[in-house]
Design a protein around this nucleic acid. Structure first.
Lengths: 202, 202, 202, 202
DNA sequence: ACTTAACCGAGACGGTACGTCCAGTCTTATT
DNA sequence: AATAAGACTGGACGTACCGTCTCGGTTAAGT
């Protein structure tokens, strides 16, 4: 699932074994040596692949990382959905707690930071990320929120994009900048505060 | 205002002119050539300084960037406060719109992204950031919120740290990941939604 | 004609143009800026070559210099011989005067001093020098002396290596240490004195 | 016993302890780490001395090395002479064997190579060496040879400088360039061959 | 079945930057 | 005023990777 390429080489001859080895090596390496020391040469060596094979198919290190993430999510694509028990608050708490758990998992922490910083500095990659990863996830979230809105559990005039940001933004920001501990309790707190608002309820 | 150093060289002999030149060069360069192409060598050359003078006083490129930011904020330290007109909502909107304006200012966008990603990958630097930049800013914000809380404009049992996250987190996340446009209207929307909550007000 | 290498990289892919450019640059530079200011970086820059290309193929600065000398002597290898007019004394005088001229030639003086001092401090390089440059030259000299010996012009029990040392040693030592003027007359004097010995001839 | 200095600082205030410490450190270090890794900074650190104290009194690393050698020879200056048993050949053999022993002594080998190469590349230093070390030694040698010449053991018209070169040149050259083993037997052989000449004695 | 052209591994190439060492100069505080 | 200490600019060190470029060797398509 290669990222943007204006004039792509003949993709039909592409070696799928090499492609998979490269993505796996990239994902593993960024977890092992960290983002700063991740190098194309290292990925090629680990994957048992010539450097050119990477340069032929990906425009940047970030694009490789990005595809590595896509590979992880393969299979789960179409059918996934957020839980809907009818209880919005507990559903959201469950989902945000799962997000917290993933962000705290050392297997995903470094790779996700790496991808985040590549996105932060590469608008083209950011656009691809938006399209291929963020938007699908966001649609799932908005789908659940829309159901709640219809059921009268959310304000009628609510902008669902803002609502998503309000739930996940605090989490992601605290994770990336380490501005505080990232605990399940924090996730719960965010959900409650977001739902009820900062103002006192009459 | 140098960052942490276990065994610092004799700081009394330090050249202040070099220190300032380095920080200014770092800040300017990251804006000009971008984070990825920022190099210690480039900073040293621009500052008219030997590389060793940088390595002598800073442990990493991120630490230089961090001190460059500290230098910007010098002078404004003690007396700053968030506006308090009594109208919390409009005060918050003014502050968040100012934040949006700053994040959109090309003079600050790249340098701040650079610092953010350094922080994301260097826990030690993150700790220094927390202590020296984030915490003072957060205290100002919490100070304003506390006043509102006392005035009965915010929920009594509100965790002010969560409140701050709820207001700035969505903004910063959208900015860094470019998951959507960062406009003054978005700032207003975040403030309103945060204050009122996602649920319908009775 | 690269010097010893334990684990050589794949030599078949080696760029001959780079190799020649490096050797030429090294030889030229040592004549221009002198031995003390000769740097790998300077050689690479002058040759229009990456530093790694030098480090890939040569273990030291001295080895580069050494190969530069070998390149000079290419072609003349096999067929060369010392003159043999039958008159040993005048043949030797001619050869030693030529040596003197070469040592006095500013085009060769600095490069040869540079090589000499590298050899003096690097036994491995000295061994290569011995094998590839000194021995062939010494064989030519001994060949001429052996002919003279057979003709009864030299003592029967003479050690030809000592004889060679006796003729060239004084010259080279005076040149390198500048312990006295290096003139054609001096060359003649050395030849005569060596042939006749210090003792009065009966 | 500082080398040439056009405008010397006020030598009366000079610290003799520092001077001695520097020379001793230079001599020791060149033996320990070798000529290539000998640094002014290393000498200063070993001597417990500021770098400026070295730069104030010596114009170059070679000059320090040179003075270190002079310090070794102090005391023995005036009274020394070559042995004169009346048997020139055995006297010379004894002296040359001593020279061989010294050149083979690891305590002197590296330092002497270091000094030799500094001399080879610094004509000013070479002149100082000639004047202060080589000439006195050479006079001693010539004194012994002159005595032999007067006794009829050497040719009447012999140039004693050439004679000295003929005896020590082969040795020094073989030592510095490692063109062959440097043994007492070689010293004997050189003496015999030099005295008798290469030609057959009638 | 047989070219033939693209892909592949390998890795040399010209470069840029790394982080370190040292040169030689300058400044500060001590003696 | 000379010294020990050491910060300063500057330049070279030897290494790691960058992204480009051959080199042979497979491998799949199209004749």
């Amino acid at each position: 699932m290669t990222t943007q390429r204006r004039t792509s080489p003949n993709a039909s001859r592409r070696s799928d074994a090499s492609r998979r080895a490269i993505l796996a090596a990239a994902f593993d390496l960024v977890g092992e040596v960290g983002y700063a020391k991740l190098s194309i040469e290292g990925i090629a060596a680990r994957a048992g692949v010539g450097k050119q094979t990477i340069y032929r198919w990906w425009p940047s290190k970030g694009a490789v990382l990005f595809d590595a993430f896509l590979m992880l999510g393969e299979g789960a694509d179409g059918e996934a959905a957020l839980p809907d028990t009818g209880d919005l608050e507990s559903d959201l708490k469950a989902v945000l707690r799962a997000t917290v758990a993933e962000l705290n998992d050392p297997r995903y922490d470094e790779p996700m930071r790496a991808l985040s910083t590549e996105i932060a500095h590469d608008p083209e990659l950011a656009a691809a990320y938006l399209e291929r990863l963020d938007r699908p996830m966001r649609e799932l979230k908005k789908h659940r929120l829309r159901a709640a809105q219809r059921a009268g559990h959310l304000a009628e005039d609510l902008d669902l994009d803002v609502a998503v940001d309000m739930l996940w933004g605090p989490l992601l920001n605290r994770w990336l900048q380490r501005t505080g501990p990232l605990t399940p309790e924090y996730a719960d707190n965010v959900v409650e505060t977001a739902l009820n608002g900062l103002r006192p309820r009459r």
